[in-house]
């Protein structure tokens, strides 16, 4: 039973990581939103499984929040935004996809290297979970800096936050209040981002953030 529970937790967390790589690679916006929704579902399943094996019913609440907010509400809203902006068919240029994937692999290696020697104090389950969570977080950050579109940057941020929740669920005794506040702040961040995307669009007829840079009169990324 112990081996099986470990395997399932491993599988779900690994699934999240694979989906992170998909996010990194996917260049169609609608498809990317779907992948993000899938990652949220995987997160919710993972958290629910943690609730079962840790015998911590409050994690079920977290799982439900993740499923409803991140699996359904946010992707739906993003889909609507994308459609409203008329960019749902757009193909975003991913800078050096192969290189990005390689860097992503390096990041995963780094997080495993960091987390595995943590020692005998924590269970192997928590250790693996933390390694996956850290990898998801770093991949989310990597996605934020390799993309130019504001919507995909939002998705990168949300995926980063998925990693945070995964890490939090793995650690025993994380109080529910913390998870609530994290979920709430993510929602706020999402609203702010959404408003911003529309403001950018109004002003520049594009959601490419490099338009912002041009507006600020940057020396950096002149086209």
């Amino acid at each position: 039973m112990r081996a099986l529970s470990f395997d399932i937790a491993h599988l779900l967390a690994g699934l999240m990581l694979v989906l992170s790589f998909l996010l990194l690679y996917q260049d169609r916006i609608t498809a990317m939103l779907n992948v993000f929704a899938m990652q949220a579902v995987a997160l919710s399943a993972s958290v629910a499984w943690q609730a079962v094996i840790q015998d911590a019913p409050h994690l079920l609440v977290t799982a439900a929040i993740a499923l409803v907010v991140k699996g359904i509400v946010i992707p739906t809203a993003l889909h609507r935004i994308v459609r409203k902006l008329g960019i749902h068919r757009e193909i975003e240029e991913v800078i050096g996809a192969g290189l990005t994937m390689l860097v992503g692999l390096g990041l995963v290696a780094l997080s495993i290297l960091l987390m595995l020697p943590v020692g005998e104090k924590v269970s192997i389950l928590v250790r693996e979970d933390l390694a996956f969570a850290l990898a998801v977080i770093l991949l989310g950050l990597l996605m934020m800096i390799t993309r130019r579109n504001a919507v995909t940057q939002i998705v990168g941020f949300m995926s980063l936050e998925n990693g945070l929740v995964l890490a939090a669920s793995g650690a025993k005794g994380m109080p529910l209040v913390v998870e609530f506040s994290v979920a709430f702040s993510v929602l706020i961040a999402f609203i702010v981002f959404g408003v911003f995307v529309f403001r950018i669009r109004e002003r520049f007829d594009s959601v490419d953030v490099s338009a912002l840079d041009r507006f600020r009169g940057e020396r950096g990324e002149q086209p």
Binding site: L107, L110, L138, L141, M144, S210, R216, R219, G220
Partner: peptide
């Protein structure tokens, strides 16, 4: 003072990775 948003993010990211690598190498 005059970097783009993405460059700021890259700076944060690079610093984080660097520190994590230091931690990994330290042990």
């Amino acid at each position: 003072q005059f970097l783009t948003i993405r460059r700021y993010l890259t700076l944060v990211f690079a610093t984080l990775i660097l520190l994590l690598m230091v931690v990994a190498a330290w042990r």
